[in-house]
Every structure is written in structure tokens, then in C-alpha cells.
Nucleic acid binder design. Sequence first.
DNA 1: CAGGATCCGTCTTGATACTG
DNA 2: CAGTATCAAGACGGATCCTG
Lengths: 128, 128
Amino acid sequence: MASDADDLAFDVFSRQCPSRSTLEHVTGRWGSLTLGALYEEGLRFNALRRRVDGVSEKMLSQTLHALERDGLVLREAQPVSPPRVDYELTPLGREVAERLLGLIRLVEGRMDDVLTARSRYDETRGGR
Amino acid sequence: MASDADDLAFDVFSRQCPSRSTLEHVTGRWGSLTLGALYEEGLRFNALRRRVDGVSEKMLSQTLHALERDGLVLREAQPVSPPRVDYELTPLGREVAERLLGLIRLVEGRMDDVLTARSRYDETRGGR
DNA sequence: CAGGATCCGTCTTGATACTG
DNA sequence: CAGTATCAAGACGGATCCTG
């Protein structure tokens, strides 16, 4: 009864659990946005880069590798010239992205509340 | 029809949207675990630190400040000695934590798949 | 176009020590 | 107990050059 996770094989709250790293890939700064973007439609590298405003090539590449390794993203390279590589979600990636998108929409939809809380907080502490 | 977010006031995919920073606080390495831990029960600073295995005092403190500022966490300091400060979720924080926990449980529950994908990936590229 | 490799400055992290 | 201050190490991010 100590916690809901006691009967799970993988407990993300524990430091060395492998699920922790996956959660970090998924919720990481670029991971969440990448999965969110791919949920809408499969995209090519540069299209994805444009959609996820602010990622560098390096970070996007790194993020995609991690997600592909975790089995969340599928990479399909077509041997044509110029090269064409499509990224899309796997079924598991799709499930993850759904939850993520739910979270994203919730945050987006409640930003007024957040902004209000922010200014109230800042007033109280004299904007430090 | 380009994207689902076109009709939203806040678009997290855009670099300068304030919702992006909130999403980062929420999904950040420690933010997600902190919210997840507080969903189960309100906790004091050090109890929280023990629950979220691996956080440093500094990071936990920083994380809590950010979440409090965003209106997701409530900080209740009691003027007693020794000091006692309880942290708990606000209603909005609770909603966010629910989604987060859904995501966490999904990841935990599918780690077998992830681990399988990982080893398959590593084999293919010669374990790099 | 799709990225890997490298250099380098900056921001984040995590111990550790210290305060109320 | 509940934090803040400090400092060193490493992760991160950007720019650039290069390959296929």
C-alpha cells in the first residue's frame, strides 16, 4: 500500500530502472515535441525540423535515434537520389504520443491559468 | 487543416510560446517525477527527495519553484521549529499529473517491448 | 536532402558546504 | 528540517565542414 507501483516490474521512480531513461527520451525537451509532431503525420527530416521550432540538426538527429532505439519511431530510408527518409510512429509510439498530446493540449488550454498564477507569484516575491 | 493546433491561442510547437516553458517544467527530468510523486500524496521536502530517487536538493528545490510558479504545486510552510513545509498539487496540477501518470504507467507497462526493440536495434548496428 | 564528426561556448547538474 | 550558495564536470546547442 506504500505506492501504486509496488506491483510493477518497472518502477520509474527508481534511479536505475531502464524505464526512467525511456521516460526521459519521451518527455525530454525535444522528445515530446518530436513525438507530438509525428503523431499528426509522418515527416521527413527537414520537415520535422521545421515543425519542431528551435531544434538543431544535431539534437533532432540524436532524439530520433533514441526514439527509434526504444521502438517508438520507425525510420524508413528510401535508396533514391536525392535521399529521402521518412519518420513515423510505431504502434507503441502512437500510444505514447496520444498521452503526450493529451498533456500538451491540456497545458495549452490552461495557459491562461498558468500565466495568472505566474504573475501572482512574481508579484508576491517582488519579481525576483 | 495543416495541424490540430492552428486554432489554439497557445502552440507549444512554436519556440517562443510560453506554453513551451510550462511543458518543459512539467515533462522535465524532475518535473514529471515530482508531479507523479505528489499525485499519490502531499509530501514534505525530504520525503519527496527520497521518493524521487536521484534528485539533488538543488534540482528539487528548483523544480518545485517552477511548478509552484506555474500554479501546479502548492507550498504550505508552517511556522514551527523545526521547519515543516508541505507540498501538494493544485487542482490544475492534479489534472496534469493524471496525464503524466497515465504516460508513466504506459511506459512502465511496455518496457518489455522497449527492451526488445533496444536489443534488436543494438544488434543491427553492432552494439554501438 | 539526410545526416555524421568536430570544435567550442553556454547552460544545467550534482556534490558539498553552509544558514535559518 | 528546509533550503540557499558555491563550484567543477558534463550535457547541451550552434556553427561548420564533410559524405553519400
